[in-house]
Amino acid sequence: MNLQTPTVRSLIFIDELMVEGTSKGNHMTIAVLLKQVPDTTAKISVNGGRVDENAVSKWSFSPYDEYALESALQLKESAGGEIVAITAGPARCEKLLRDAAAVGADTLVHVSAENINDFDSIQVQNLLAAAVQKSGASVVFCGKQAADTNAGSTGPGVAELIGASCVTLVSEVSSDGGGYTATRPSSAGHEKVAVSAPCVFAFDKGICEMRRPNVRGIMMAKKKPIETWSVEDLGVDIGANGVNIDSHSPPAEKPPGQKFEGADSVSTVVSKLRDEANVI
């Protein structure tokens, strides 16, 4: 499997298109892959080279996954169908599924993996791909990357495993009841990409923020069952840990600032602003 070149079965760059796909009226099931990450505003502490999960004050949706979920909700509203929210991780992830149900996810799937942090990205993709197939979904929405690892491999990786087309950096998806049209940036502005199911869309920040839940949704979410699937339930061999990170390189430190005092330094400051900083 080569994750650098995911299989793309049908890419058509057009304005007006006719695409093959399921016929209008067929039931569409969208799997939305959600990852729970430390909230971007939460203070985190590092212990043993890893984020100390016990010290994370707030867990949230990975922001790009929020765009995927909101887009799925909008597609469901316009074209019908059903949304299956899938997350993999320890028990704390169930909160994420409840939050997804509160805004409109129909089915909740928790791939139970207490040791998810020991898995590499390919192993996680194996788990998620198996869950997608078990859910019966033919369309997958996910974020383009997670806010914690920023690997950006889940969408293409799952697409490869389930034999689906994959469109990345998506801002919007629509459906005419047959195929799907995704909007994403191009060198000329934006392009529309038409694909048919099975397909995976990896979302960038789009035109919509995730909707706020309401009390009715929250109360329904409380009653909604969560299907918990273990690795064994999925019957998948996630393989050996094959991705090794040899080293981390922090960004180069910025050079220290320069300090000037007194009226005598004015000409020096002006010349530096003009000739070095190029701001005047």
Binding site: P213, V215, I218, A221
Partner: peptide, 14 residues
């Protein structure tokens, strides 16, 4: 309860 915390988070975000 979980439900009360979800309501809290909803209103806090608002």
């Amino acid at each position: 309860t979980d439900e009360e915390r979800m309501v809290r988070d909803m209103v806090r975000d608002f």
